[in-house]
């Protein structure tokens, strides 16, 4: 599959192509080629560092929804064994925008739940681009409760533009479904570890995002509204998304500065979308450490700390 590149990634893409072309010439041309390739590779590494480290918040928002970015289901085989997907909310439908089920994580049975945006057009449509309807959140809640009954820790993976804004979703109580999850996750009697792996889109993200730990991958974002949505309201023009992203401060570093997340999970230099395995390894390390910490805690202490954490959210005078 050919890689896709965002506008600001283009210089990196061009240099990568140049290096590849040069390497292919290698066998036929003189010995200096190898040296040249090495020089260019060093230059490219520096360029990558500058490109990603200095990305604006608007560019970070684009990175968090990069077309090549790993989906939840790309991570599942890299992080877990024995995955058994569990479908449906037992009331209305199975919402493919949220995937969940039981899996083994370093020898322990856990419940995993995540948004799934979809890779190709067909899958994207099936999964409604990762925008869940009430039945999706209710399926997630069913799985959270199942996990609680069988003392399984819960790991969630957030990657959504937001909850689906549709007539059907409203008719079936989109608000109620999200609200219910917030309330029940706050007191679920098992450890809950949440990780933003792409786009953390408002209430649709939060509905599977309340827990004992909140991690964000380096190039993920988490925001109350998308930069485009914010621009449309406050600037009355979506073209101001870049400015809106600056104002909203949605990056992992921003949330870390506000003390709202526990850790930034590092990504490969060029982002998770250029090396799924490396991205998964970094995530695995952080998740395992968190799980080990939480599994040692008595449940009352776990719940007390979770509620204290939630109660303390907010900055006012």
């Amino acid at each position: 599959m050919a890689n896709s590149y965002l506008e600001f990634e283009r210089p990196v893409a061009e240099m990568t192509a140049k290096i590849e072309a040069l390497s292919q010439m290698g066998s036929s041309a003189g010995i200096n080629i190898a040296e040249e390739v090495e020089k260019l590779t060093l230059k490219r590494d520096k360029l990558i560092e500058e490109t990603y480290a200095n990305a604006s918040r608007g560019e970070m928002a684009q990175l968090s929804r990069h077309p090549d970015r790993p989906n939840f289901l790309d991570y599942v085989p890299l992080l877990f064994n024995d995955f058994q997907e569990l479908h449906g909310d037992r009331a209305f439908a199975d919402d493919a925008a949220i995937v969940g089920g039981m899996a083994t994580f370093h020898g322990r049975s856990v419940m995993i739940v995540g948004h799934q945006k979809g890779r190709d057009t067909k899958e994207k449509i099936k999964r409604n681009f990762g925008m869940a309807k009430p039945e999706g959140y209710r399926k997630a809640l069913r799985l959270f409760r199942l996990a609680e009954r069988f003392d399984m820790p819960v790991l969630t993976f957030i990657d959504t533009a937001g909850a689906w804004p549709g007539i059907d979703a409203e008719e079936r109580g989109q608000s109620e479904a999200i609200a219910r999850n917030l309330m029940e996750l706050a007191v679920l009697r098992v450890p809950v570890i949440c990780t933003v792996v792409g786009e953390g889109g408002s209430g649709g993200a939060l509905a599977i995002g309340v827990g004992d730990r909140l991690f964000m991958q380096q190039f993920s974002t988490y925001s109350v509204i998308s930069p485009e949505g914010c621009a449309a309201i406050l600037w009355r023009d979506r073209a101001y998304a870049e400015q809106a992203a600056e104002a909203l401060k949605p990056t992992a570093a921003d949330l870390d500065a506000l003390g709202l997340i526990d850790k930034i999970i590092p990504e490969p230099k060029e982002g998770a979308h250029r090396n799924y395995e490396e991205a998964a390894r970094a995530m695995d390390e952080v998740l395992l450490q968190a799980l080990n910490e939480l599994l040692r805690m008595p449940v009352d202490l776990l719940l007390h700390q979770r509620q204290q954490r939630l109660r303390g959210m907010g900055i006012y005078n």
Partner: peptide, 10 residues
Amino acid sequence: GILSLMQMAK
């Protein structure tokens, strides 16, 4: 920003 979203959870 994100702090307003967190009021929902709180």
